[in-house]
Amino acid sequence: MRTVTRGTLVIAEDRCKGCELCIAACPPNVLTMSRTGNRLGYLYPELKPGCTGCTACQQVCPDFVFEVFKFEDPVLFDTPPEGARPCP
């Protein structure tokens, strides 16, 4: 599957305090929490393809973790189909 991606982020993951407000705020639902902790021991957001560059995550984040960019031309990312699992 190819995912149209219009924007992207720089995530200052070591500043994140793991509140998850960005996860709920992202309209296309392309942020997920990491499985390992950052410098402070908090889980932090990671970005999947499909960001629109809407800045919602940046606005709701209490810890100034996000910079948001918009691509001049949308980028297509190859992503495995929803629900696909890696081979064991």
């Binding site: 991606t5 924007g7 992207t8 982020l9 720089v10 995530i11 993951e13 990671e46 970005l47 999947k48 393809p49 960001c51 560059g53 800045t55 910079e67 948001v68 960019f69 918009k70 691509f71 001049e72 031309d73 980028v75 990312f77 190859d78 992503t79 495995p80």
Partner: peptide, 16 residues
């Protein structure tokens, strides 16, 4: 698939 978010993108883009 995860996007590399450690630095600004290589593709042409503008910071918003």
């Amino acid at each position: 698939t995860l996007i590399d978010t450690r630095q600004p993108p290589e593709q042409a883009s503008r910071k918003v």
